[in-house]
């Protein structure tokens, strides 16, 4: 009797875990925001996630059914019946080594493509444009753009445009940021785009992405960077090409505001 109760505990746990995952999207506990990845690479990452999820769900259900079955069987067996005397089964061992092995290897190989196009220079999109230099520091993101109609250079230029915690990019075209840090390690993380990259002291790392929908997305630091780690709240604003150009022009003018003319802007 007691054995069945405990069997149920384990079975109910597995069922509850599955159920929790099944209802999670309805309670906004699945992927952030709309649940849809809003960058091209993000969409491919989501796809890979779901592929793994399916494999894993099947294995999870299978293993738990097997576990539930052996427990239930053991629980309802009269206590005087002797256990099966078996030291194992060579064929079974081979089967359950080879089949998962093949599946796992296939999963790994299937991932390569996305990783290569996200991180490897040779596979970057041809028309990618480096749009800004993002400098992480304790505890904010300082961002530098080239003046309108100029290209960003590694060294600052007198007419560069600066913002803080506010990264703006045009949509529907591959853009790159040049990620660096002024002090400790940080990580550039935009959950809704599924993009993450550590900013490594002493290094300048290009990160490219193509946002597919205009909007405002949270920019988060994902690597412990000190006491104010949680304060590194920024935003990534994706704008249409025209809006982006207009904004950059406006930002340029604001930055070279001399306080006369149209009078003091109240920012």
């Amino acid at each position: 009797m007691e054995g069945r109760f405990w069997t149920l505990v384990f079975v109910i746990f597995a069922a509850a875990a599955l159920a929790a995952c099944a209802v999670a999207p309805a309670y906004q506990l699945w992927f952030p925001g709309s649940g849809e990845a809003l960058s091209t690479i993000g969409a491919r990452i989501d796809h890979l996630f779901y592929v793994i999820l399916v494999v894993i769900a099947v294995v999870f259900v299978g293993v738990n059914v097997a576990l539930g079955y052996v427990l239930w069987r053991g629980a309802k067996q009269p206590s005087e019946v002797k256990a099966v005397y078996s030291h194992g089964n060579q064929t079974l061992e081979v089967v359950w080594t080879v089949i998962p092995g093949v599946i796992l290897l296939a999963l790994a190989l299937y991932q390569m493509d996305v990783w290569a196009s996200f991180r490897m220079r040779e596979f970057y999109p041809q028309d990618m444009r480096t749009i800004a230099e993002v400098t992480a520091r304790q505890f904010e993101w300082r961002i530098r753009y080239a003046a309108p109609d100029k290209t960003l250079e590694a060294d600052p230029h007198p007419d560069d445009v600066y913002t803080v915690n506010d990264l703006r990019v045009p949509v529907n075209r591959p853009v790159a940021i040049s990620l660096r840090t002024e002090d400790v390690q940080h990580a550039f993380f935009v959950p809704e785009l599924r993009i993450k990259q550590d900013a490594l002291p002493g290094k300048r790392i290009p990160v490219w992405f193509e946002v597919t929908r205009p909007g405002t997305y949270d920019l988060v630091c994902a690597e412990l960077c000190g006491w104010g780690h949680y304060k590194m709240k920024g935003r990534l604003v994706a704008l249409s090409e025209e809006d982006y150009a207009a904004w950059l022009k406006q930002a340029f003018e604001d930055q070279f505001d001399d306080g006369v003319g149209e009078g003091e802007k109240s920012d």
Binding site: G74, A75, A83, V84
Partner: peptide, 8 residues
Amino acid sequence: MWGGRLQF
């Protein structure tokens, strides 16, 4: 566990 005499 399979086919054992399980002691819960």
